[in-house]
Every structure is written in structure tokens, then in C-alpha cells.
Design a protein around this nucleic acid. Structure first.
Lengths: 95, 95
DNA sequence: TTTTTTTGGTTTATATTATAAACTACTTTA
DNA sequence: TAAAGTAGTTTATAATATAAACCAAAAAAA
């Protein structure tokens, strides 16, 4: 009845990051940080985890002398997110 | 933008328990255990937590010589569940 | 009738996860 | 050139989840 929920996605911050990224082509670290109201440390860790499992691609470069980290959701990430949402629905339907 | 998710409800097993209870008048420990595919130990702990915050009422009695634990969602629990679902929607809407 | 198994759980030790604090490295401004 | 700001990462700790071990009583088996 209750399907297992992907533990990588069942985390408030990582889910928010994925939710953001699914709507845009890519997003900068600072933008994600502000949008999700997270600390840089926490976000750094969670972005690393999403990258490790291949749900996002992370690009690091320099812009105007400053480091700039941008994130982009992958096909695998989109699929995982959609499955997570589908499975979660079972838990939410108030009968 | 992203509202905080109630950490008591943002846990797979506790959410499953609440999801079950919201649809019925009350449910027995064993039934919940089987429905959620959880171990007794884990379920015992999570039920205690839901009780501690007042989301469910727990009744312990004896039936046919055996201990029988039944759980029932409270008004507070229903409200919390509904708010959780509402807040979670923001994270799930694929734009 | 005494041992073994089953029922219905709880407690506790450990593994996992989340988070904040401390740190790194470099840039800009005063 | 010292202080403050930007853009992060690393690491130590707190919180959480989970499984394993345990408990008490009843029932079944030997």
C-alpha cells in the first residue's frame, strides 16, 4: 500500500532544491540559498548529495572574479522527483 | 515561498500512520504494523512520538487475555496533517 | 507439567541524517 | 594594508530513524 519514499528526496531542503530546479534551466547557488532560506553550509552538503546520486549537475566557474556555482536537474533527477511525487500522493489523500 | 514542513509528520512511517488513521475511527497496533510494513520496535517509537505531540490518542487494554493497543487521530492531528499536506503541495507542483 | 513458541509489544544501542559553526580562499573597499 | 564582504566547503554535534535485544504473559507442544 505505502510505497517507499526515496530518502534522498524525502528531506525538506533537498526537495525544495529539486522543486526549484525542475522549473528552471539552471540556478545559482546563491539564488537557491535565498529561495530556500537555507544556510550555505547546509545547502552545500545537500547539493553534494543530490550530485552524488546523479539527480543534478553542478558547474563551478568564475564570474566577475568570484566563484559561481550553478545547478541543473538531470533526466534521472526529473524521473526520481516524479516518482517521489507519485508515491507520496498515496500518503496524502484525505479520504 | 517554501513553508517549513512539520518535522513530526515529515517522516515516512509517522506520515503513513497518520494517513491510515485519518481514514478510520481507530486502528490496532498490529493492523498499523502490517499496513505500513514496519517493525514493532520502530512503530512503537513513532507512535509514542505522535502521542507525545498530541496528534493521536493511544489506548491500551486487554482483549482475549492479550494486550491490545489502539490508536485514534485527534483534532490537533487532523489539523496538523492538513496543514502539512497544504504546505507540501508547494514543493510538489511541477510547473 | 515444564519447555518452547507465539503474541504484543517496549527499551536501547547504533547507524544515518541534518544542521550550525568554524574554516578556506579570494575580492573589494576604506 | 587592514577590515569587511562574497562564495562557498569542511567538520563537529545534535537530532532522527531503525534494528536488535529484550520483557511479560499466554498458548501450544512435548
Amino acid at each position: 500500500m505505502f510505497k517507499d519514499l526515496d530518502p534522498i528526496l524525502h528531506s525538506q531542503l533537498r526537495l525544495a532544491v529539486m522543486s526549484l530546479l525542475i522549473g528552471v534551466k539552471e540556478a545559482e547557488f546563491t539564488f537557491i540559498k535565498e529561495s530556500t532560506n537555507s544556510t550555505a553550509g547546509n545547502l552545500s552538503v545537500q547539493i553534494q548529495k543530490l550530485k552524488d546520486v546523479g539527480y543534478i549537475d553542478v558547474n563551478k566557474k568564475f564570474k566577475d572574479n568570484y566563484p559561481l556555482t550553478t545547478c541543473k536537474i538531470t533526466k534521472k533527477g526529473i524521473d526520481a522527483f516524479e516518482l517521489y511525487v507519485k508515491n507520496l500522493q498515496e500518503y496524502l489523500n484525505v479520504k
